[in-house]
Structure formats: C-alpha cells, structure tokens
Design a binder for these strands. Sequence first.
RNA 1: UGGGCCGUCGCCAAGCGGUAAGGCACCGGAUUUUGAUUCCGGCAUUCCUAGGUUCAAAUCCUAGCGGCCCAGCCA
Length: 566
Amino acid sequence: MSLHEEKKPTDFIRTIIEQDIARNLNNGQVVTRFPPEPNGTLHIGHAKSICLNFGIAGQYPNSRCHLRFDDTNPEKEEIAYIEAIKEDVRWLGFDWGDHLYFASDYFERLYQLAEVLIQKGKAYVCSLSADEMRSYRGTLTEPGRESPYRNRPIEENLTLFRAMRAGDHPDGAHTLRAKIDMASPNINMRDPTLYRIRRVAHHQTKDRWCIYPTYDYTHCISDAIEQITHSLCTLEFEDHRPLYDWILDELHEELPCHPQQIEFSRLELEFTVMSKRILTQLVTGHHVSGWDDPRLPTIAGLRRRGFTPASIRNFCRLIGITKAPNYVEMALLENCLREDLEINAPRAMAVLDPLRVVLENLPENHLEEITVANHPQNPNLGSRIIPLTREIFIERDDFDENPPKGFKRLIPGGEVRLRNAYVIRCRSIIRDTQTQVITTLMCEVDKDTLNKAPEGRKVKGVIHWVSAQRHYKAQVRLYDRLFTVPQPADPKSGGSFLDHLNPDSLKILENCPVEESLADCQPGQAVQFERLGYFSPDIRDSKPGQPVFNRSVSLRDSWAKVENKR
RNA sequence: UGGGCCGUCGCCAAGCGGUAAGGCACCGGAUUUUGAUUCCGGCAUUCCUAGGUUCAAAUCCUAGCGGCCCAGCCA
C-alpha cells in the first residue's frame, strides 16, 4: 500500500474475514446477511449493521449480502414493515440483488430437520406449561431440572410432533425442545424451545402452519442454507453462540456449511432511545407524530429530518465496530450531516424572526435584481437572482440596542453588511407606541458597497435579509433533542423515559419570509439558510410550490458559545 | 461467591512486546460579504487498579476493581 492510498477502514471483524480469505476458507468467498424482523421500523442502530454487512460484501470480490426477514413470530410481525424496511435499506444506498429471503421460506426444511433431531434423540416434545417450564429452568445460580417428558421414546416424540403440526393440540400444549443440558451454566443450553404451537396466520405462509420455529433454531439453519460465511450480530447473542453451533453440529450432515457467528456491540446514541419497545411507546403514546417523526433516530425520521444517506453511512464508518459498550454523542452524527451539506447544499436566505428595515435613501418602488452565487466555494452550483427592495426583513436578534462586547451585527448608528448586497447604517428606531417594542429600523444604504468594501473603514458584521415586498412565506420547524438527559432509558437517570422528554424539542414558526426561489424546493433537497443552518422540505406536509421547512441541523455557532458563557 | 463479554483523552477509536494514530468535542490564532467553511496550533509521560515477567509492557502473567448481557413457548 502506498503512503497516499487511503487506509482501509478496519475493525476486528474485517480482520477475521481477511484472515479467513487468506486461509482460503469458503473458497475465499464472503457472504453476509442483514436479518431484520418485520416488527418495527429500522433505526440508526440498524444502519450500523446494514453498513457493516453490506459494506463488507461490497468490499471483497466474490461476495454478497442477503436481505433476510427473520419472520418466525407472526404474532408481532406486519407485512407493512417489510416494505418499509426494504425502502430504508435501499435509501441508505444498498442493494441485495436477487438475494431477498424470508426465514419462512425455510419452514418446511426446518420442520424436516426437526424430525432429524428427534430421530437422533436430540430433541423431544415437552408437555410442560410455560410456567412449569420456567420453574424447571432453574435460575442464574442454580441448575435446572430435567423435564419429566425429556425421555419420551423417539417414536412418541415423532408422533406428537407430527400431531402438533397437524393441529391436533391446542396452543401451548406442547413444545419441541432440544435435549442438551439442564445443568448448563448457560441458560440458553438448558433444553431450549425449538417449536411452539401458535394458531396465528403468518404474513407470508398464511395459515399453512400452526407451529412456528424459534429464533435460535431458525437463524443458524437459515444462515447455513444460504451459505452465509460470517453471521454478524450484536453482543446479546454471544450467549446464544453455543446453541447456534450445537444445532449446526448436530445437523452437519444435512447442511452445506457451518457459518461463523461474530458479535459486535450495538450502537447507542445520547439524548435519544434505540429500543424498539420505547420507540413504539413514543409513537403509540403520541409523544411524537409517528415512526418518521424528525426527532426520532429511525431511518424514516432521519430521512424526513433531512439527513442524507451519505452522512449516515459516513457516521457508521466513523463510529467503528468493536465489542465495547458505546454511547455516541449526537454531535458526531450532526457533524457528518454538516460535512456533507457544507459541500453539496446550495445557499439561500431566510428570516425566522423578522424585523422590518426601511432603506430610507432608496425610492419607494426600488427593485434591484442582484445576482448571487448559490455556493461560496463551488461555482458549479450556479447562481440566482434576488430582489432588493426599499423594505426588507432582517433577523430580530441581528439588531441590539445594548450590544454585548464583541457584537458584530447592527446597532444604533452602526454599520453592517447585508449579505450579497450593500452596507447599511442604522439611523433611527421606530417603536410601537403602546408596547415600546421595536417595529422598524430606518437605515441608510451606502450605494458604493455592492461587491466592494466601503472606503476608509471596516465593516465586520454580515447579516442575512429577505425582501419585505418579494418573498415566500413558509412554515419552518426547528428541532431539538427529544430528551433532556443523555441516557433517558437508563434507570440511573431517574424516573421513566417519559419524565425526560424535552418540551422544547419542536418549535413551529409560521410565515417566515424566505427567498422566493425556495418555493420550488422539493423534499429530499437540502438547502443552507445562510447563517442559520441546513433545512429540507418536509416529506409529509410540503405541497407543490408550498414547502414546509425542517431544520436538519444548525450551523456551528461560535458566537452563541460566547453568549452562553456570559 | 452461575455463565458470557467489556474497560486506551469529555465521546467514538487505532494499537496485538519496541516506547500512545485518527475523528468528534473543547481551547487558542489566521483568512472570510455566512461569528459558517477553510487553514494553522494546542489537547493521554499515559492505557481501570495493584503486583509480577522483560533490556523494554496499553500489549504477556497474577490478583483485584468497575460496567454490560442472560432465567420469553421474543428476536
């Protein structure tokens, strides 16, 4: 590798894979899979897994990544989630080609293999109730007891299991269990359940089955059938690996290979939640507007907020893959978006909290069309024309009668540059006679300052503005973190996560004057409102010609930092 | 005082016996018609702790300490 070549992103999993390739394991092939259960929408934690699995497949020749729905529990799954998940994966920029699978595709094969286990004396039908099974299981510190049904003759097991499939027994009457070791210190090895009776229609197999295989039984076999080489999952499955291996070892004569399970730590993000349970509660409890609420860390929420696929992929690259528990700061995610949009988003001007300014030395009907670049560094983004009129709006907090030290914006008698236009000087202030609130600033334009510095003095401040006569009025939504504490779901934070909801996480501003050109902005397009942040039209609420803007992320603001310290 | 796993800067994270990469954050300073961007500089004598092995330890050994996961017929 040359010095100039970018160093490959590396992590312990890729290290293992490269060693495997070097040893010509699996003929040098790498096959991974992303295996979501269609019982909820994807979030940024899933993006980490997607980027890992598809990323690896895209990185080695002769490799691929399957999209496989782990649909073994019809009670919790919905067909709608399948399409949503596919859309999210595609949107993130990944392609599974022809390799779309469902664990339910393998139900018949799984059933046949269960009979093989029974024949081998490695599985039995247990008739303990759920409660009984729990008490037989023992505890973390005490071994379990063997089920009284553990030594049922093979023929009886077979007959019962077939009857289970045929629907001869009510839900919960029996289970099929692996016969392993009730005294194992690993609870997953204490005769885990392989099949349960559940009279529920399945979104894929309809009512063909009334028995369903469990995750532990299904996942490893599905991996083997698809000839997955590296089965990557999160840390909580570490304890399941012995079972994964046990099942594949027992069935090795029936299956083409024995994939390698490798675990990595899941992603946690500060000031939000990643748990499907809590996400569901936020949605069903109407604490947010839906799965795609822009404050949520769901892929749909991030997309609606205005995040780009590239920014999310970059984020996943930066956080790395390890086995260490990690709570990543929101600032890193935000930075990834800024980094992308800084280069790619065209600029425009918008005023969120307008203050009227009259340029008193311009005629009433003054209309000047100024050509401005859409990006200060990238001329390829072109230019546009903005109208300057006698009355304009500026941001209310860009004017201060009693400016703090270091204030560079407009002050009484002071000068400031109108971005892309002239330098103006504040001559007088007009107030509401009742409330004394400032309603208008009377200012004078220095006509010799378009595209040039004023003579003999320096004007440091630059503020954005929009014509008061020619603009589009938009609704703008400002988002902040959904929670007030970094780890809202952690009991150590006190109370329930609901106690930590940020009441100011959404601020809706109506009738914000924005540049006319913004009326054509489409969902999916990002734009920088100069000096404010990156904004993107809301996917749901924008109408053709009437965008509603979501603030995706603010610009860095070192002045705000100075002010906060005060 | 059951089993599995983890502990390197505020947050991620390289490092795999030869004398602590990088990113984010933070703090300076330069340039700037975005207090943005960009640029330059600073930011772990120390790797959970304590012993030990070694010429040499974040890396090896021993003993502690702290944290996470597991007792669904969920995944």
